[in-house]
Design a binder for these strands. Sequence first.
DNA 1: CTGTTAGCGCGTTCAT
DNA 2: ATGAACGCGCTAACAG
Lengths: 339, 339
Amino acid sequence: MPATSTDQVESVRLIDVARVAGVAPMTVSRALNRPELVRSDTAKKVLDAVRATGYVPNMLAGGLASSKSRLVAILLPTIANSIFSDTVQALMDGLNASGYQTLLGLTGYSTSQEETLVEAILGRRPDGIVLAGTSHTEATVERLTKAKIPVVEIWDLSDKPIDMVIGFSHEQVGVEVARHLLAKGYDRFGVVSVDDPRGLRRCRSLIDELADHGKTSVPFEVLPAPATLRAGREGLSRMLATECPQIIVCSSDTLAQGVLAEAASRGLNVPRDLAVMGFGDLSSAAHVYPALSTVEVDGASIGKHTAAALLARFAGRRDTALAGGRMDTGFSIIDRESA
Amino acid sequence: MPATSTDQVESVRLIDVARVAGVAPMTVSRALNRPELVRSDTAKKVLDAVRATGYVPNMLAGGLASSKSRLVAILLPTIANSIFSDTVQALMDGLNASGYQTLLGLTGYSTSQEETLVEAILGRRPDGIVLAGTSHTEATVERLTKAKIPVVEIWDLSDKPIDMVIGFSHEQVGVEVARHLLAKGYDRFGVVSVDDPRGLRRCRSLIDELADHGKTSVPFEVLPAPATLRAGREGLSRMLATECPQIIVCSSDTLAQGVLAEAASRGLNVPRDLAVMGFGDLSSAAHVYPALSTVEVDGASIGKHTAAALLARFAGRRDTALAGGRMDTGFSIIDRESA
DNA sequence: CTGTTAGCGCGTTCAT
DNA sequence: ATGAACGCGCTAACAG
């Protein structure tokens, strides 16, 4: 079989391109990574040689030599729940545009699994790490601190961030939802949550605030993570077995959709017979179910700011928007029910 | 400030661990990667030294030296749609357990974006690549072929796979749904899809099959990807502006949920006034909305088989379950409506 | 603007 | 069972 010019039995190296282009290997490297340092006509010769040979730079070698991997790791509890999807999308878009790629790790809401993943991932010498949440094992924090790379904790706040934090206060969500609903005159509350740390904090904070206003013993159903439609149905079923709330507050939008489904199958009119409140990002249920109130978080904005903060650091700058290493992106309560 | 024993101003290397353990660097490498080749007492010395120094192996250097990156790349259209989440979860779990990590790439349903990502990702010298779908640019196929690494195309089938394929026939889904619904006596159909290649193929195949049975001019609404609840609402709204179908077939479960929401807001009883059919994986809507029929795909199984196929190849074996490089995981129609 | 030298941190290969 | 020499493919630092 005749070999074509782009056959690649043994992988093409920088030196092969240099030979074809008639320049030194270093010039090829520069033409590819810092084109502003070479004359445009030699750059052209190099690029022609790259195309002719089908050269693909070996970033393992490049990373080893330069101590820059152009890799960012993202650790999430799960991707089953879509709550982080806008964030991840925006983050990856921002990073990709600057030539960075993303290592994904799934922690399953377990800090010990996160610890294992962090150790494995640090072996890749990522240029930065993004963690969902601000609760980690001591070992995780220590390793991350020693790694001396930018770390962004997202979707939460913290008094002592490892490095940078971009998120909002889940306690404040709970408090504001409680006050909002009390102001609307609700008296009998029910809370349904999955067993995820931030969701639980939102719900507990809400329950505490209700207690401060005289509403004690608010019924509270907790289901195993991750949040699914089925968990929402199950949560409402259990709740209605013994209670008769006017409004159900859910730890996430997916859960709220499950509650809506269960309510529908029982012939309940939402919000007349039962009001429902969810929590999620902008692309989710709030704009679809008119009867559903929701706390909305702009997940894409978190991702965008995270990418910007990391890229600023990679460029040796400090993101000016991140005063004190911390940025509160806020949230808003969208009220759709009319009870 | 006094330095503790685990300070890591300059990163700890293999040679540092060797010095502390009183052995040669090579012995440390073996103790870590092939423990069966060293005596257990020297292995212990090494492990103690690793802990004392806080050593984290540099996988860039290791990968360069061994030509094994222990990295697998996954390319998906998006993570907004949860349809792939079970697959990704199962795949990552299987891979992680064997020390592999995952690079994530989002193609946004664009083959040219996929091409760009493939090129960038091949620079990391991944040990394997997983692609959602079997439709790619010529350049993508050529690069992947030349890379000489295991490639798994998932969630679809193909007559000429790049390497391995694990999925099912989307045309067959359409045909079987059509026959199923015809057998149930439906006469007036409506189809709502998002603009995603596989979803469109399912729907077109269904429409063709309906035409073969005399049902021509089936109304067909196509909305921009990704599939969201809102798109589903919009799809039904447009459909009902001019048509009066008995059943709406949707290209995905998320879309179907949007259709359900719109139906509910119009006071339509599902399935009495309007039946709805979705498509998705096992964790989704079918088990929650009793009135919703669904084509169910076991996404977790696809992920599990994909991990197994890759790991078999890494070990130099050929996965026996993958006869001819191709595995059809099938799907099933879950019928919930009672019209 | 371009080339040369040296070495990133590790695993392969061979020797012991 | 352990060690020494070498090179993986690339870029930093310096020289010209």
